[in-house]
C-alpha cells in the first residue's frame, strides 16, 4: 500500500562503503531489530528491506513458516501478528518491531500436547506434502478465533487464502470443524 506515490528519477544515493574481501563495496541499509517472537525477545540485524518471512527463515532459524510464492498469493507464510493472521512475505521485519509475533513453532511447545488444530490436522489427514501446512494451521487457528468456522461453507471461504496443491481441502474443512467444536 502506498500513499502519495512520488517517484523521482535520480541515481541511487549509496554513500556508505564497507570493506569485504579486501574490496571496497557499497553497503546496504541495515537495521537492528528487537522482535517478540513466540514469547521470546529476539535480536536481529538485517537489511531494512528484509521481509518478516525471510527474517524468520534466514536469520532466526524459524523455518516452519514457508515461502511458497513470496507475493501474497498462496498463504504458506501465514503467521500471527498481534493475534491476527497476516502474510509474512508482504510484511517488513522492521514493521513488526513492538508487535507480538507467533509462528507455527510457538503453537505448542516441544514435548507438550499438540494444539487442538494440529491434532485435528493429524487425525483428519489434512495435509500430504506438509509444505502449506504451517500456514494452513496458523490460518485455521485464527479462522476459529475470528468466529469464521460456523459452517463448512464459511470455513471454505475463510480458509481460501491458503492454497494446497496436494488437495487436502476437504480434510482441512473436517479438521477445522472439529477443532472449532473442541475450542468452543
Amino acid at each position: 500500500m502506498f500513499f502519495g506515490l512520488l517517484l523521482v528519477e535520480r541515481p541511487a544515493a549509496l554513500g556508505t562503503y564497507c570493506h569485504q574481501n579486501g574490496v571496497k563495496t557499497p553497503m546496504t541499509n541495515q537495521i537492528s531489530l528487537n522482535l517478540d517472537i513466540n514469547g521470546k525477545s529476539r535480536q536481529v540485524t538485517v537489511e531494512a528491506r528484509v521481509t518478516l518471512l525471510d527474517a524468520l527463515r534466514e536469520h532466526l532459524e524459524l523455518t516452519g513458516t514457508k515461502k511458497g510464492c513470496d507475493h501474497g498469493q498462496c498463504g504458506a507464510c501465514t503467521v500471527h501478528v498481534d493475534g491476527e493472521r497476516v502474510l509474512s512475505c508482504l510484511t517488513l521485519a522492521a514493521q513488526v518491531e513492538g508487535s507480538t509475533i507467533n509462528t507455527i513453532e510457538g503453537l505448542s511447545a516441544p514435548g507438550d500436547a499438540l494444539h487442538p488444530v494440529q491434532a485435528a490436522f493429524l487425525e483428519h489427514d489434512a495435509f500430504q506434502c506438509g509444505y502449506c501446512t504451517p500456514g494452513q494451521i496458523m490460518s485455521a487457528v485464527a479462522c476459529i478465533r475470528e468466529g469464521h468456522a460456523g459452517s463448512d461453507d464459511e470455513i471454505r471461504e475463510y480458509m481460501s487464502g491458503n492454497l494446497c496443491r496436494c488437495g487436502a481441502y476437504p480434510h482441512i474443512v473436517d479438521a477445522v470443524r472439529e477443532a472449532a467444536k473442541e475450542l468452543s
Binding site: G72, G75, T78, E84, R85, V86, L87, L90, T91, S139, A142, C143, E146, H148, Y158, S160, G161, N162
Partner: peptide, 8 residues
C-alpha cells in the same frame, strides 16, 4: 483478497 490480506 484473503483473510490474511484483509487483516493487513
Amino acid at each position: 483478497a484473503s483473510a490474511q490480506i484483509r487483516n493487513m
